[in-house]
């Protein structure tokens, strides 16, 4: 078990080293709430933080823990909190995930992070059987009224709005393309926010293509190619298949906007900014409550205001400083409630 853990950890570390991810300790400069700009050329790996809790933690997640998207955002967040969770990833089938969740609970794990909205139905059956265990479930807006469930949710439309606004500044009103998977889940919130941000700044054509698949890279690639023939001057997209679309952006010199995890590693030149989920902001609070004996009952969301959403700007892209400060104004307005991006 011990060797295994260190192996996992080493793999994780080496993998993360390959990415240029934001980390305050590693040369990134935090300029204001809501944004951060990486320094070009530095190795911005996720750095393991000081361990915040002695609780044992397990994660059950639908995609691979190194997907540079949804699942990795959670693993990275735990790393920043100094926690090495037990992980069961790639459990896209709900019944298998339910089996794993129950298994961890029976093993006596203190906190089980149930990282997939689709697992909610099963969780509602499992959680009452293990009143001593705390379940952290997302993305979800409600705890389903169960005392030992915490829920978490990203206000993805907020960062989407900021991304959309920056994109519209870059295209000067020119068309923008979005490559989506299936029109469902938090992808929709991000895309709606993105559209609103772009349209508020004079873009009349935000072309959205849903490929019908979360994982088909070939489809995402050709969807992006099709958007290029429409004449889009900036691209964004969600899901693990988005890497195909990033490649198209990279080849055509079209700026790309990422979400969920920092996607600079996918294209150093063309990734402008990524909305990154920093779950640690709310996880920290939850762990504290759990240690004090409150095992759930609250839903928390990531926002630009609480720092859970961070628009991480790629230092290598050399974004115009006017645009960057403009983006910060937008963020301030969103935090102040002057702008309410639609979800």
């Amino acid at each position: 078990m011990k060797t295994n853990r260190s192996r996992r950890f080493l793999t994780l570390l080496t993998a993360l080293l390959a990415l240029s991810m934001f980390a305050a300790a590693c040369g990134g400069s935090e300029s204001a709430t809501g944004t951060a700009t990486s320094e070009c050329g530095t190795d911005n790996a996720v750095v393991k933080g000081d361990k915040v809790t002695d609780l044992s933690v397990a994660v059950v997640a639908p995609s691979d823990s190194q997907d540079l998207a949804f699942t990795q955002s959670m693993i990275d967040s735990l790393t920043r909190l100094g926690i090495e969770p037990q992980v069961t990833d790639g459990t896209f089938q709900v019944e298998v995930a339910a089996d794993a969740i129950r298994g961890y609970a029976e093993d006596g794990i203190n906190v089980i992070i149930v990282h997939g909205t689709q697992y909610g139905g099963s969780l509602a059956e499992i959680a009452p059987d293990f009143p001593e265990t705390s379940f952290i479930w997302g993305t979800a807006t409600s705890t389903q009224g169960i005392a030992n469930i915490f829920a978490y949710y990203p206000e993805a439309q907020q960062g989407g709005y900021v991304n959309g606004w920056i994109a519209s500044e870059l295209t000067g009103g020119g068309a923008i393309g979005v490559v989506g998977p299936v029109e469902a889940g938090d992808a929709v919130a991000y895309i709606n926010g993105f559209k609103a941000g772009a349209e508020a700044n004079g873009v009349s054509n935000v072309a959205v293509t849903y490929t019908g698949s979360f994982s088909d890279v070939a489809l995402a690639t050709e969807a992006a190619e099709a958007l290029v023939t429409v004449g889009v001057e900036a691209l964004t997209g969600t899901s693990q298949s988005a890497v195909g679309a990033v490649n198209v952006a990279d080849e055509n010199g079209i700026p790309w906007f990422g979400t969920q995890s920092n996607q600079e590693a996918w294209s150093t030149d063309q990734v402008v900014a990524s909305q990154v989920y920093h779950w640690e902001v709310i996880l920290d609070d939850m762990f504290e409550m759990i240690e004090e004996g409150t095992l759930g009952g609250e839903a928390m969301s990531l926002t630009l205001e609480n720092g859970g959403l961070l628009v991480e700007i790629n230092g290598c892209f050399n974004l115009d400083s006017d645009i960057e400060s403009g983006a910060q104004d937008i963020i301030k307005k969103i935090i102040a409630g002057d702008i309410n991006p639609p979800a």
């Binding site: 293509t209 019908g212 190619e225």
Partner: peptide, 23 residues
């Protein structure tokens, strides 16, 4: 057929509400 449906989706000839049907 795949390429055409992606083109038509990009041009909103096929609306997003029908994206799965297009697929």
């Amino acid at each position: 057929v795949t390429a055409t449906r992606l083109q038509w989706q990009a041009r909103d000839i096929i609306p997003n509400s029908a994206s799965d049907l297009a697929a």
